[in-house]
């Protein structure tokens, strides 16, 4: 009896000890570590990558490449982005970056006066180097250090050649583009036009729209109504292609057009996979990110001064729907 009691007491004692210990561990254990404070100032070069089409596949890849490169170079890089072509927000971010005196800005070029003012006046005032990426703005207007991205003229001509190859040497081609004529868009158009003008049997139709989705649909409807004989469509601005395909799908069960575009729009790759468009120009966003960071670091470290003003072109290739499916 006494022995049983003693054993019981011991069991209670150990159970209490264990429970107390466990809960003490819960109270005093802290697996959370405060982030390390940084003692030395300006240890890292601070770079900013600013885009207006954040969270698209194209820009995600570009950002990935850039971050990888930045890590390799030991610089800190942040990606700021605005969504859906919000110019105002985009420009504000650029201005913040300039006022924040970052060491270098890699930015998606925007062919507007405000952008040019910021890059030419403000950034130069603070002595911040700007590299345009993916979309260029001419150096005379922006005072950018260099451009990293696809050769847009070449891209235009490649896509025109692919169209001719698929469609044949005669027919009418609809070129839709943003009314806000940006530099890269102009270059693509130039490329396309320079190929097509050699074929007299090809009729070229132009359709200008704004970036608003409703507008695109209306414009597409208009142009298709006016010229129903269209055989091929090239969306020079990749942002247009989503709304364009949507409108065409409404009209036809099986779309009768050869549709081409570029990969820097939010819907380009999805549509290509679905077979809704026939081909896109695939650029090398990762390469762009990488190269841009590399170049700006070279400039900042004084290794390559000045950078090639014409720009550093990355690979482009045609990606057809058949290859993806």
């Amino acid at each position: 009896m006494r022995k049983t009691g003693l054993i019981l007491l011991f069991i209670i004692f150990f159970a209490l000890c264990y429970l107390t210990f466990v809960s003490a561990e819960g109270v005093f254990r802290s697996d959370w570590q405060a982030p390390k404070t940084i003692e030395d100032e300006n240890a890292q070069l601070r770079l900013v990558l600013i885009t207006q089409d954040a969270e698209t596949t194209f820009w995600d890849n570009l950002g990935k490449g850039a971050i990888e490169q930045a890590e390799k170079e030991g610089a800190s890089l942040e990606i700021w982005g605005s969504y859906g072509n919000n110019h105002e927000d985009f420009l504000k971010k650029l201005e913040i970056a300039i006022h924040s005196k970052v060491d270098g800005i890699i930015v998606q070029g925007l062919d507007t006066e405000e952008f040019k003012y910021l890059s030419k006046v403000k950034a130069s005032f603070y002595g911040i180097p700007i590299i345009t990426v993916a979309n260029d703005v001419p150096v005379e207007e922006s005072l950018r250090r260099t451009y990293v991205g696809s050769d847009q003229y070449k891209a235009g001509s490649m896509i025109a050649k692919q169209l001719l190859y698929d469609m044949g040497n005669s027919g009418s081609v609809l070129l839709t583009y943003n009314s806000n004529q940006e530099y890269y868009q102009k270059q693509r158009l130039n490329g396309i036009q320079d190929v097509l003008k050699n074929y007299p049997n090809i009729k070229t139709i132009y359709s200008e729209t704004s970036s608003d989705r409703e507008q695109i649909i209306t414009a597409t409807r208009d142009v298709l109504n006016k010229t129903p004989e269209v055989d091929g469509i090239i969306a020079v601005n990749a942002n247009i292609v989503g709304a364009l395909v949507q409108e065409i799908s409404k009209r036809y069960q099986v779309e009768p057009y050869f549709i081409y575009s570029f990969d820097d729009g939010p819907e380009s790759l999805t549509l290509l996979r679905q077979g809704k468009i026939d081909g896109i120009i695939e650029q090398s966003p990762e390469m762009m990110g990488k190269t841009s960071v590399q170049l700006i670091m070279e400039w900042l470290n004084g290794e390559t001064v000045p950078l090639d003003l014409k720009g550093y072109f990355t690979d482009i290739r045609i990606l057809k729907a058949k290859e993806v499916q």
Partner: peptide, 8 residues
């Protein structure tokens, strides 16, 4: 107040 997370 600077630390790894908020340095930038």
């Amino acid at each position: 107040l600077r630390n790894e997370e908020n340095d930038f």
